[in-house]
Computed example of a mutant assay.
Amino acid sequence: MYLYQLILIVSLCSILPAMAESGHPQQSKKPKHPDNLIPLPEVPELPPETDSSPLLPEIPVDPELETEVTIIKRGEDIIEEHRVNGELLMIKVIPRIGPPYYLKKNPIRSHHDHAGEGGIDVNPPMWQILRF
């Protein structure tokens, strides 16, 4: 009994779309577009490639602004000190276990408000989460 119902349903599903297409002979299969369409302009040709690329101007490098990196090994840990013009700006610590972390100078606390303020001028340790 269920087999006959299944055959009837499958046959109707295959016949109904064919009847729907053939039922309206006045309709063409081309979609109708508005009459006021304007064609797109042609794509211009690219200029020919040249081997001589424009040269960048020579800019002298200021040695005072170059970063000086000092690498220190303490046991199995590696410490990189980054200095600019002799001033320590950042320390990168690469431990034997775990990800590297950075200690940067805190520019806000570089000038103490009063003599009783303790602590050092370093931000809390920072770990790199994403890299682009």
Rank of each mutant, 00 (worst) to 15 (best):
G86K: 06
E49R: 14
H24I: 02
S11M: 05
E21K: 14
S28K: 10
P31C: 03
K30F: 11
V122L: 14
Q27Y: 13
P124L: 02
E81F: 05
E42M: 13
F132T: 07
R96P: 01
Y101S: 00
K32A: 12
P17S: 03
E76L: 10
L8C: 10
E45Q: 08
P99E: 14
I59D: 02
R96I: 08
E81V: 02
Y102E: 01
I59M: 05
E87L: 07
P125K: 01
Y102G: 00
I97D: 13
Y2G: 15
V93G: 01
D62F: 04
E87V: 08
P25C: 00
P31D: 08
M19S: 07
L40R: 09
P100I: 03
V122H: 02
E117S: 05
E45I: 04
E68W: 07
K104H: 03
Q5G: 15
V43C: 12
E87T: 10
G75E: 05
I9R: 13
D77P: 03
N36W: 05
L130S: 06
N36A: 01
R109C: 00
P124A: 01
S22W: 09
R131S: 12
V10L: 13
L56I: 03
I59F: 08
H114E: 09
I108T: 14
G23N: 09
H24T: 10
H82S: 12
N36M: 00
M126K: 04
E64R: 14
I97W: 13
S11E: 05
N85H: 15
S22N: 14
D35I: 04
P31A: 05
P107G: 00
E58Q: 06
S28I: 01
L103R: 00
M90E: 13
V61F: 08
L46E: 10
I120S: 13
M19Y: 07
G116L: 07
K105H: 03
E87H: 07
E68V: 13
M90L: 11
E87R: 08
L46P: 04
N36Q: 05
L16D: 00
L55N: 12
P60R: 05
R74Q: 15
S52N: 13
D51K: 13
E45Y: 06
H33W: 08
T67V: 15
P48D: 15
N85A: 15
M126W: 01
L130G: 05
L12T: 06
E42F: 09
A115H: 15
K92Q: 08
L65M: 09
D121I: 03
V43N: 10
P100Q: 02
E81Q: 14
S28W: 03
P41A: 11
I71V: 15
S52I: 14
Y102S: 01
I9S: 15
L88T: 00
K92T: 07
P57A: 01
L65D: 13
N123R: 03
P54S: 06
I9H: 07
